[in-house]
Design a protein around this nucleic acid. Structure first.
Lengths: 190, 190
DNA sequence: CCGCCTTCCGAACGATCGTTAGCCTCCAAG
DNA sequence: CTTGGAGGCTAACGATCGTTCGGAAGGCGG
């Protein structure tokens, strides 16, 4: 992919995140590149292509982040690492993450279906961390792991609204993990 | 406000939630009422009025929900009640809640400023529950109440994406609260 | 019965939308 | 030296956007 084309994708991510997909016109994208809007069609077939591309980039980034979590570590450590990895993606690729979380729903047809499947798969991988943690006995055996995963995923998915680039996302993820593990009333058990 | 006008506001909430503010045309709104689009201007001055109205309705609903939390109850109970109240609003007014959480950012000018102030005030009221819980000693004294509030608010604000009308929101809120209080590893202390 | 108010229609407004077309320029590979 | 592709231009397309306007029903209070 040409350098110009990459610039276009980056501009699309930024503008879609800032003004929304339907709030961003092809003219806006052209202006961001300093070009007439008709010229963009040397690079794309339609505006929808850009949304698909940015959304796919987001899916790839989050899956790659989860891939970095070691499979043989202790469950609590894996949960902490998964949260670290997720928040790092959000902070380092905020525009892409925003499109991944909020703007994907303007995808249409089979692209939408394909994206939803990838998104569901990501959340399922996340959920599995909690289920395995309970099954392996490192988390309380009566844990409601579905609720725990939902709570963690809520924090992860909501992060794009408040997380700013440059934040110490590892520390943030560790605070979330500590709270999830020990709670607000319990006392440290280690 | 006339009955017809209320119908229009409800249709706007539904369509803005389903297709987004910029993805909803005045023609779409007119079709929902079975009317020509020009006819809507007997009720409103602009499309932006409807967004403002729905967003304001959401702010009022969430603040009213927090008002229902008794001030003299124990901190943990107040947190549980606040979560219950919030999730109940989401489930019972899903469209309005969706606009309140996601579509408000297309407000412009002083309306946007006013909304942001109301939203910040709501989150601040929520945060105070955790801070007071720590200060009053019912939560661990070394609690990171900012992180705890962020976690709870994330769950609350993300709920519109998965919560369906008719869910048992009280039970849901109780599960969230139990997890926040006791954690995934701790054992019940009562 | 009159006049007003609400509600809607049908038509049109200018602006902007996403997209296409034909033409031009530049540069690198053959 | 030629040629072809990449990238950009200007102009225009039909569609749709949010909004305005004049007129006309219909009901309701005076």
């Amino acid at each position: 992919m040409s350098a110009r084309r990459s610039e276009l994708t980056r501009a699309a991510a930024r503008l879609f995140a800032e003004k929304g997909y339907h709030g961003t016109s092809v003219g806006d994208l052209a202006k961001a590149l300093g070009v007439q809007k008709g010229s963009l069609y040397a690079h794309i077939e339609s505006k929808a292509d850009l949304l698909w591309e940015v959304a796919s980039e987001g899916a790839a980034a989050f899956h790659a982040a989860l891939d970095s979590v070691p499979e043989d570590a202790a469950p609590v450590d894996r949960i902490r690492d998964a949260l670290r990895a997720h928040l790092r993606v959000v902070a380092e690729q905020l525009d892409v993450a925003t499109v991944f979380v909020r703007e994907w729903r303007y995808l249409e047809g089979e692209r939408r279906d394909a994206f939803v499947a990838e998104r569901r798969r990501y959340e399922e991988r996340f959920r599995a961390l909690f289920r395995e943690g309970r099954e392996l006995g490192q988390l309380r055996t009566d844990l409601d792991d579905g609720t725990a995963a939902l709570l963690a995923l809520s924090a992860a998915n909501w992060a794009y609204t408040w997380l700013r680039p440059g934040s110490d996302t590892d520390a943030l993820a560790d605070r979330f993990t500590a709270l999830l593990v020990d709670g607000m009333r319990g006392y440290a058990t280690r």
